[in-house]
Structures are given as C-alpha cells and as structure tokens.
Design a protein around this nucleic acid. Structure first.
Length: 560
RNA sequence: UGGGCCGUCGCCAAGUUGGUAAGGCUCGGGGUUUUGAUCCCCGCAUGCGCAGGUUCGAGUCCUGCCGGCCCAGCCA
C-alpha cells in the first residue's frame, strides 16, 4: 500500500454525503469553486484546496469552477491569472464552464449596494481611515457609531454615485454596512463594502474607481454561481455571520453555505504568499519556480508529480485543527509515486575511476538493463561496458568491516546490471587521495552468482568511462533549518539553510539518459529520484534536479 | 479580562445515537531482493489537555480549569 487515496479523512465529504442521504440535494447538484486571488503563485496549501474542491466535485459528480477573487487591483496581476491556470491544469484538474471573475460581477454588486442603501442597510461613511479605526473600538471595548451613520438613503445614494464617478478622493469615504458597532465580532462592526481605489484593474481596465471588499463580494459571487458549498480556511470563520447577513439582505439567486477547514502547514517550509514573495524578491531563491519552494510551480520543477501531491492531500485529510504536517509525509507520497513510475538509470555523482585489469582495452560489450525492476511495460535500456568505468567515491574503501557492503580491496562486489568485480589495489595521489581502483572481473557472473558460490553482499552503480556522458546535477535540500519558519513574523530569513542547493558539475550519466526530455523523471539507482530540468536541460548539456533521495536506512543508522 | 475555533500516540487523523481507542507518516525488529530502494511480516496510546461529576459503563454527557490558533486592513 503505497498510498491511502481511498481512505483519507474528510469531514466535508462526509457532511455533503449526509445531505445527499437526507435527500437535501443530489450529487450532480454539488457545486464548488476554487477562488484564488491573483496576487501571487499558488503553493502547497492551495494544492490542498484545489484537490479538496475539484476532488469533491469529481467524487459526487458535481461541478467546480474557477473564480478569480480579484477585488483588489492594486495587488493583482495578469501574470498570476495565467500561472494559476497553469498550476491547476498541471495538477490534473479542469474547471467547469468559463473562468469566472469576481470583477465580472462588479455591475451586479454595485446594484446590490444600491439595494442596501435604499433599504437603510448601508451608508457612506466620511470618516478617514484613521478615524474609522478609533471608532471601531477594540477587542474588548465596543466601537461607537460614526456621525455619518444616519445619513438618508437619498444622501447615501448621491454620495455613493459620487464615489463611483471619481469626484471623491481615495480614503475620503467608504460604503459600509450598517450592522452593529458594539458587536463582539469585529467583522460585524459596520464592515466596509466599497472603497475608492483609483487604480486600473487587470480585467475591467479603468471602468471602476471603487472596488467592493472581500466580504461584500465573496458570498454574492458564490450565490451568483450557484455554489452550494463554499469552502475556505479557518480564519474566515468569524466572517461567516457576515457572509450570511449579506445573503439575507440581498435578492440573491441561491443560498450557498460556507464551511471552514484547517489550513495546511508543513514544517521546514513557508506557505505564506507574503513570505514566498520576499524570498523571491530578495533573491534568496531563483524565482517563484525555484525547486526549493513549496509553490506548485517550484515543486513541479523539483520533480514532484501531480499524483504525489494528490495522494499527499488525501493522506493528510481535512479537519478543523491547525497543525503542522511532517515534511516526511510529503516525501513519502513523492517517493511512493516515483518508485512506481520512474524509469531507472545510473548516474555517478562523485566519480572514482575503476580499471578492470583483466578486461582487454580494445573490447567492449552492451548489457540490457530493465527500465524498472517490477514493470516490464517500461522499455529496457542498453548499457555499454568496457575496461574503464566510474563508480561513486563513497562506494570504495581500502578496508572496512562486514557491514560495509560495497567495494573493498580483496572483496567482491556486483556491478548493477553487470559483472562481479574483485578489487585488487588502488592508486593514490601525492596527498593520499584515492584516484583509481584496479579490479578484475569474473566473466561468468553476468546474470549468475560466482562459481565459487560466494555471493557478493553488495551491488554498486557505475557508468562506463568511454560511453558515459557528463551532466550537471543540482542537489536540493530543505530551504530552512528551522522546523517552523512560518511561525510568527520576521526573522524567518535568518533560518535559511545555506546548503539548500549544491550544484555538482561533471557527474557521469549512462548514455541512455542523453535522450531525456525536460521534465522526464528517473530514479538514479541507489541515489534518488531526479528530473531533467524543465528549463536548463538539453541533450548537449544535461541538467538534473534531485527531487528527493532514496530512503537510506544505512545512512540513517549512522553508516559504519 | 470581548467573540469565534481547536486540544485523541513524536506528526497528520478516525472515533455517527455513551459500551470498552481505526488508518497513514515517523521509528524499532525480521523476511525477500543484482537498488543498504521497493515489497512483505511484526511491534509501537490501560489511554484520549487537566480535575471533578453523572452512569453498570465516557474520548464520547455535565461542571470547572489549563493550553493553542484567529479577529481591532478602506487585504483576501
């Protein structure tokens, strides 16, 4: 069982199922939506939301649409509108119907605002932002009514229209809902419905200079789209009374219900758009798609797969507590999918030359190696072999105890997919570094154990020195040394892991790898999972990113 | 010291009307293996934040504490 896709916990799925069982709605009527604000790149937390929303729609045979929650043009950009679509598609989902934009409802929302003004449920407040803050009160003290709170519907209408026409300055006034300045729920203390922002919008251009707030937009947008279940994270729980209040005050076509779930946090990484942006802007990483980032595009470049992310989201479940998931869970999901699907290949990262003294210099041959140990549907590959090859420095020792199952002088070791070798001697440079190992090979050991019945304990990977190709390999490690860089503000930049990226030039890869296309994934046997870089890889200059190492019980036991 | 929410094994997380603690991750032990990988077995909470109470019986009900998260943007 490499994944638990069928058993993940999800209280929302259960809740909808109960509603269906109770005959309150049909599965085909389930309507969800994924509502990102296009102000940054999507990250692993969004992946959870995407898998939840689109996954629920698939599960019940309902629908899920994409809606950009674009009510704050000052922070948004078309670049993000595009990247978000790419990320959703890459994850394997597609939205039903056309893409929706909250900005597409601006006309309707404006009419809704007028409706509320006419009913005495909204007023134009001329308090400055600073004054408004003072009037709002504090967490323990009630706020007080604005002196402009009792303006007549007629006056409010004129003022609101003036706001819209551009006659009024930013900050000079705002449209607010008339609810209760003494409410213990801060969100109900006459929340802002519209504010003046004289900036162009990426979708509506300069048509508007007033923009609706999240609270006045989200629920109505949901209703307009016929959304039955509006899912959001826990911090919006306090907004639910307001979400429902607007819905009861307006002639909306549906009554969506908001349900909150716990945000996803993973240790050793950050999932806050603000913090991610800072890492990018200050150059701590190479961009939004840096493989060390938990952005979807970054994980993609790192070599993670959509299936791995989906399995991970299913495995962590959906609940209402705000915990921190172990990075090991994500890694488990990634290894699980890659182990099942990634073709095998060999790559030597830290080369040590081996010369097979009893193998003729002018001779060579080709081995056929399986593409995958337990999948014959993956094509096999050809491994050229000759007198000289490279193995990993770490795989050789002049002498070692029995626990070391690799190449040791006087001992036998098996070349993966090849012969059994007997190490005889090694050559050192003037400072004592081992630069070459001399061995003899046993010609009868291709596919069988040595005739003497002594089976080598170890198997090592290798690359033929003549036929092998050079490659650059980028070894990634966690971006932060601290398990919770996301906690609190500031100082998370001090917790950056200075060794999060190690670039290794001049690695040796088996020739079959020269055919790799960007984004092709492999398991370099005994080393880890790697992906040909999406942007920098080419047959002439191969570049592989390490997605994740293999589990290594030997290393974790403290080697020898 | 206002309001809302949360607290079950190191980490996620089940536990519908009280009936005697799922599963996954991690970790430890063993088996298979031309990847010290995968895979396969086995082990890992007499206890469910704490303290009382109700009950034949409570993680599930009651009371009181303790701890954590969110809210005072004309951000979402």
């Amino acid at each position: 069982m490499t994944d638990t896709a069928a058993t993940g916990n999800n209280f929302i799925r259960d809740k909808i199922q109960r509603q269906i069982d109770a005959g309150e709605l049909r599965g085909s009527e389930v309507q969800l939506r994924f509502p990102p604000e296009p102000n940054g790149y999507l990250h692993i937390g969004h992946a959870k939301s995407i898998c939840l929303n689109f996954g629920l729609a698939e599960h019940f045979g309902g629908k899920c649409n994409l809606r950009f929650d674009d009510t704050n043009p000052a922070k948004e950009d078309l670049e993000y509108v595009d990247s978000i679509q790419d990320d959703i598609h890459w994850l394997g989902f597609d939205w039903s119907g056309e893409i929706h934009y909250a900005s597409g409802y601006f006309d309707t929302l404006y009419d809704y605002a007028l409706h509320m003004i006419d009913n005495g449920d909204a007023y134009v407040d001329s308090l400055s932002p600073d004054e408004a803050r003072e009037y709002r009160g504090t967490l323990t003290e009630p706020g007080k009514n604005s002196p402009y709170r009792d303006r007549s519907p007629t006056e409010n209408r004129q003022l609101f229209e003036a706001m819209r026409s551009g006659e009024l300055e930013e900050g000079s006034c705002a449209l607010r809902a008339k609810i209760d300045m003494a409410s213990p729920n801060m969100n109900m203390r006459d929340p802002i419905m519209y504010r003046i922002r004289k900036v162009p919008h990426h979708q509506t251009g300069d048509k508007w200079c007033i923009y609706p707030s999240y609270d006045f937009t989200h629920g109505q947008s949901d209703a307009l789209e016929g959304v039955t279940h509006s899912l959001c994270t826990l911090e919006f729980e306090d907004h639910r009374p307001l979400y429902e209040w607007f819905l009861t005050k307006l002639p909306v076509p549906a009554q969506p219900q908001q349900t909150e779930f716990g945000r996803l946090n993973i240790n050793y990484t950050v999932t806050s758009k603000r913090k991610l942006r800072l890492l990018v802007d200050q150059g701590h990483v190479a961009g939004w798609d840096d493989p060390r980032l938990s952005t979807i595009t970054g994980m993609r470049r790192r070599g993670y797969t959509p299936a791995a992310l989906g399995n991970f989201c299913e495995a962590i479940g959906v609940g209402r507590s705000d915990g921190v998931v172990d990075m090991s869970m994500l890694e488990h999901a990634v290894r699980g999918d890659l182990d099942k699907n990634a073709p095998r290949a060999m790559c030597v990262l830290d080369p040590l030359k081996v010369i097979i003294t009893n193998y003729p210099a002018d001779q060579s041959e080709e081995f056929i190696a399986a593409g995958h140990p337990n999948r014959d549907d993956l094509p096999s590959r050809t491994l050229p072999f000759s007198r000289e090859l490279y193995i990993e420095q770490d795989d050789f020792r002049e002498e070692a105890n029995k626990k070391f199952k690799r190449m040791v002088i006087g001992k036998k070791v098996r070349l993966r997919n090849g012969y059994v070798l007997l190490a005889e001697s090694c050559v050192k440079d003037t400072v004592g570094n081992i630069v070459e190992v001399h061995c003899s090979y046993d010609a009868d050991t291709l596919g069988n154990d040595p005739a003497d019945g002594v089976k080598p304990k170890g198997v090592i990977h290798w690359v033929d020195a003549k036929a092998g190709k050079r490659a650059t390999v980028r070894l990634y490690d966690r971006l932060f040394n601290d398990p919770t860089p996301d906690r609190g503000e500031g100082e998370y930049l001090d917790k950056l892991n200075p060794e999060s990226l190690r670039v290794v030039e001049n690695c040796w890869i088996e020739p079959s790898l020269a055919d790799a296309a960007p984004e092709d994934r492999f398991q370099f046997e005994r080393t880890g999972y790697f992906v040909a870089d999406k942007l920098d890889h080419s047959a002439d200059k191969p570049v592989f990113n390490r997605t994740i190492g293999l589990r290594d019980s030997w290393a974790s036991q403290g080697s020898a």
